[in-house]
C-alpha cells in the first residue's frame, strides 16, 4: 500500500514536471493576446497585459464570428466525413482479402509521402473547371480522402478487431454494412476519437488551401481572417495571437469531451475481448 502511494506521487510529480514545459508556453500564448503587439518583442512576459480590450476590438472589427463559423462547420464536416471514409477503407484493408490489396495499400501509403502543397496550382485550376472555386467545397471534399486516416485505422483494426467477431456476426446473418457499423466501429472508438481530433485540428489550422481557393472575405476561415489583421510593415501579433487563441477553444473543448471515450473505448474492448 505504501509502495503504491510512493509510485503515485513519483508518477504525478514527473508528469507535472513534463506538463510545465507545455503549459507555460500555452499560458504565455494566452497572455500574449493581452499585449500591445510591439511589447511582445521585448522579452518573455509572465503576467497578463492591459491591451486585451483593444486587441478584442481589432478582432471584432473584422468579420471574426463569420470566420469562426466557417472554420467550425468546415472542420466538423471534414472530421465526420473523413472518419467515415477512413474507417470504411481501413476496414476493407483489414478484413477482406482482394485482388491487388497489397498494391492498393502500398499506393495509399505512398501518397502520404507526397508533400501536400505539391499539386496546388493544378488543384486550383481543377477547382475552377469544376466551378467550385470561391466555395467551401474544395476545403471540405479533398481532405476527406486521408491516407493517414486509412493507414491508422487499418493498423488499428488489425490490432484490435478479432476476426471471430466479424465471422460470428456474419453467421448471425448481419449484412456487411451493418456488421461494419454496429460491430466493428465500436472496437475502434478510441482510434476514431484521436483521429477525429487530429482531423479537426488540421482542418482548423489549414492555411494554404483556403488562401488560394477563397477570394471573398465572407468565406474566410479563422487563420485566413486572422492573418489579415496586419499592415505591410507591421503585423498586429497581439490581436492575431488573441484571435488564434480563441481559435483553440473548440479544440480544447473537443478534447475534454472526447477524452472520456478513450476510457469508454477501453471498457468496450474489455467487455467484448
Amino acid at each position: 500500500m505504501k509502495n503504491t502511494r510512493i509510485m503515485r506521487v513519483l508518477l504525478i510529480s514527473f508528469l507535472t514536471l513534463v506538463s510545465l514545459t507545455t503549459i507555460v508556453p500555452f499560458y504565455i500564448m494566452l497572455i500574449m493576446g493581452t499585449y500591445y503587439s510591439n511589447d511582445l518583442f521585448r522579452g518573455i512576459i509572465a503576467v497578463p497585459g492591459t491591451y486585451l480590450v483593444e486587441n478584442m476590438k481589432t478582432i471584432l472589427a473584422s468579420d471574426f464570428f463569420r470566420f469562426y463559423f466557417n472554420s467550425f462547420y468546415i472542420a466538423c464536416s471534414v472530421t465526420v466525413l473523413a472518419l467515415l471514409v477512413s474507417a470504411m477503407s481501413g476496414y476493407a484493408f483489414s478484413i477482406y482479402t482482394f485482388r491487388l490489396k497489397k498494391a492498393v495499400f502500398n499506393f495509399v501509403l505512398a501518397t502520404m509521402m507526397i508533400p501536400t502543397q505539391l499539386g496546388l496550382i493544378a488543384f486550383v485550376w481543377e477547382m475552377k473547371e469544376l466551378g467550385i472555386l470561391n466555395t467551401h467545397l474544395p476545403l471540405i471534399i479533398p481532405p476527406v480522402a486521408s491516407a493517414f486516416g486509412v493507414f491508422w485505422l487499418t493498423q488499428y483494426f488489425n490490432g484490435s478487431l478479432p476476426r471471430e467477431v466479424i465471422e460470428s456476426a456474419r453467421i448471425d446473418g448481419a449484412g456487411e454494412f451493418r456488421t461494419f457499423f454496429q460491430i466493428a466501429l465500436p472496437f475502434v472508438k478510441p482510434a476514431l476519437t484521436s483521429l477525429g481530433l487530429l482531423f479537426f485540428l488540421w482542418t482548423w489550422n489549414n492555411y494554404l488551401t483556403p488562401l488560394v481557393v477563397v477570394s471573398k472575405e465572407s468565406l474566410y476561415t479563422v487563420p485566413l481572417g486572422i492573418n489579415v489583421l496586419s499592415q505591410l510593415y507591421r503585423t498586429d501579433y497581439g490581436a492575431q495571437i488573441l484571435g488564434l487563441s480563441i481559435g483553440t477553444i473548440p479544440i480544447i473543448v473537443l478534447f475534454v469531451v472526447f477524452s472520456r471515450s478513450f476510457i469508454s473505448g477501453l471498457t468496450a474492448v474489455a467487455v467484448k475481448g
Binding site: 485550376w125 475552377k128 472555386l133 477570394s215 472575405e217
Partner: peptide, 27 residues
Amino acid sequence: VPVNDYAKKFVTALASGTDIPDMGWME
C-alpha cells in the same frame, strides 16, 4: 478583399487562370 501572402495568392490565381483583382499591388 484583405489578403496576406499576396504574391502567392496572386501568382496562383494567374497560373490557374482564375479571376484576379481589378487592381494589383506590388510591394
